[in-house]
Amino acid sequence: MKKKHAFSGCHQGCPVEATLEVIGGKWKGIILYHLMAARAPIRFNALQRELPQVTRRMLTRQLREMETDGIILRTAYPEVPPRVEYSLTAKGHTLAPIINALRDWGEKHALRPDGTRA
C-alpha cells in the first residue's frame, strides 16, 4: 500500500507543482538569486561569470524558459556588438520571498566546504 504524505493533496494542477515548474531545475533558482541581488539589469556575460559551472547553452536555455514564463525580461539593444540585458519582471519580483527562503534554509542546513552541516 502506498504511504500518504502530509502534502498528499498535490496532483496535476497543484500550486506547488506549478511553482516548481517555473523555478525548478539546477540553475533557475541561482539565476533568479543573482538577478535579485543585482537590483539592476545584468548582461549575459556578467551573469555567466557569476555562474562559471553552467554552460553557455544551458544558461541561454534557462533564461529563455524564464522569459517564456514571464519571470524575466530580455532586452536586446541594436548595437554593434549586440548588448543583451536581463532583469526581473514584476511577476519575477514576486518570487523574492521564495528565493530568500531557499537561501535562508541553505544557510542553516547546507553542508559547509569541510563537509559538516551548518
Score class of each variant (00 low, 15 high):
residue 98 I to E: 04
residue 115 G to Q: 00
residue 45 N to C: 04
residue 86 Y to E: 06
residue 100 N to F: 05
residue 2 K to S: 15
residue 65 E to M: 12
residue 18 A to S: 11
residue 78 P to W: 09
residue 22 V to G: 01
residue 1 M to I: 15
residue 57 R to S: 13
residue 40 A to G: 04
residue 62 Q to R: 10
residue 4 K to V: 12
residue 42 I to A: 09
residue 101 A to R: 07
residue 61 R to K: 10
residue 108 K to Y: 03
residue 81 P to H: 10
residue 1 M to H: 14
residue 15 P to M: 10
residue 11 H to K: 15
residue 23 I to Y: 03
residue 11 H to N: 15
residue 43 R to P: 02
residue 73 L to W: 13
residue 6 A to D: 14
residue 114 D to A: 00
residue 99 I to K: 00
residue 98 I to M: 03
residue 88 L to D: 02
residue 48 Q to T: 03
residue 92 G to F: 04
residue 81 P to M: 11
residue 17 E to L: 15
residue 109 H to G: 04
residue 64 R to A: 12
residue 43 R to F: 06
residue 39 R to S: 00
residue 86 Y to Q: 01
residue 67 E to L: 09
residue 54 V to R: 06
residue 75 T to I: 11
residue 30 I to K: 11
residue 21 E to V: 11
residue 49 R to V: 09
residue 35 L to H: 02
residue 36 M to V: 05
residue 24 G to R: 01
residue 31 I to E: 01
residue 114 D to I: 01
residue 26 K to Q: 12
residue 108 K to H: 01
residue 118 A to I: 01
residue 56 R to Y: 09
residue 6 A to L: 14
residue 11 H to T: 14
residue 9 G to H: 15
residue 99 I to A: 04
residue 48 Q to Y: 02
residue 35 L to V: 04
residue 53 Q to G: 08
residue 85 E to H: 12
residue 41 P to N: 00
residue 73 L to D: 13
residue 44 F to Q: 04
residue 96 A to T: 12
residue 58 M to P: 10
residue 102 L to H: 02
residue 84 V to N: 04
